[in-house]
């Protein structure tokens, strides 16, 4: 049931068409940042306005929506975005990755393998992977146009020189389809390999920066590295205290004043889908 007075998906049809055109261009040019006329949304920039506009433009009455924030379905941001779409579209929502047709995410890729037909919508705070290195926007555009990406390797070089290894543990830059350098949004580097040849369509929306980009299904996505310092997705060397998983990305919890640490799966759906450990085994 759509709340009275709202168009389906909150945005008006012209805006949705405009965004879909940008999305088509983005899919046609994997990794290329397409400018779009980002609209004011009923929540502030930084809360996922880019992702919401993308979702609003592609969602249909038959879709099933899942929203996660740092992997969790039950955090404030995820809950409010899910409820927002429920109110303005009336579509079904779910917390199960496998059941969803559209998954909007902030800062994670679900652990469960996505399949063809699913769409993963990323909320992106800063779409420009070069922005910390080259402050001039016009110059970064030229660098993309000319695939002039030596500078990005300079950043990697600096990491290794200063810290002995690539220290970028999230938002680790990738080269899409051998052409465009792309920010995967602030997902952990651990998730980067999941982007490569993913069967699902990946769409990225940056509301404040007014950019949309995409990775079509089965597209090569390579994390930048050096021959003698290959990319290594980092993960805490521990098991989830709830489900015992050793293959999932973990959140670290400090559980008492003595600094005792626990690790739990960041992907709550994945964790819940596994048989819980017996207390003693933890």
């Amino acid at each position: 049931m759509i709340e009275a007075g709202y168009n389906f998906g909150y945005l008006d049809e012209n805006t949705k068409r405009m965004i879909r055109r940008a999305l088509l261009q983005a899919v046609a040019l994997p990794g290329y940042q397409v400018p779009f006329g980002s609209r004011e949304m009923p929540l502030p920039y930084g809360w996922g306005t880019g992702g919401i506009q993308v979702t609003a433009s592609i969602i249909g009455a038959d879709d099933t929506l899942k929203v996660i924030d740092q992997g969790a379905d039950d955090t404030t941001n995820a809950v409010s975005i899910r409820r927002f779409f429920n109110r303005v579209t009336g579509v079904a929502t779910t917390e199960h990755t496998a059941e969803a047709t559209i998954i909007q995410t902030r800062h994670r890729v679900p652990e469960a393998k996505l399949r063809e037909g699913q769409v993963l919508v990323y909320q992106v705070p800063m779409p420009e992977p070069l922005f910390r290195l080259e402050p001039r926007v016009a110059e970064t555009k030229r660098m993309h146009a000319l695939a002039d990406y030596g500078l990005m390797h300079v950043k990697l070089y600096e990491d290794i020189a200063q810290h002995g290894a690539a220290t970028t543990s999230y938002n680790y830059p990738v080269l899409v389809n051998g052409r465009y350098l792309m920010s995967p949004s602030p997902i952990p580097a651990f998730d980067n390999p999941k982007l490569d040849m993913m069967p699902a369509l990946q769409l990225f929306g940056a509301g404040r920066e007014k950019r949309i980009y995409a990775v079509p299904p089965y597209t090569e996505v390579r994390s930048l590295d050096f021959e003698d310092h290959p990319f290594q997705p980092a993960r805490a060397d521990a098991a989830c205290v709830i489900c015992g998983a050793r293959d999932s990305y973990l959140d670290e919890l400090i559980v008492d004043d003595g600094g005792k640490r626990h690790f739990v799966c960041s992907d709550t759906d994945y964790c819940a889908s596994r048989p819980p450990l017996v207390e003693a085994a933890a």
């Binding site: 002039d148 030596g150 500078l151 390797h153 300079v154 070089y157 600096e158 290794i160 020189a161 050096f226 021959e227 003698d228 310092h229």
Partner: peptide
């Protein structure tokens, strides 16, 4: 070192 290395990397050097 990064300043000197940049041109090498721009020219395709990928061995740290």
């Amino acid at each position: 070192g990064g300043n000197v290395g940049e041109r090498l990397m721009a020219a395709g050097a990928r061995h740290y």
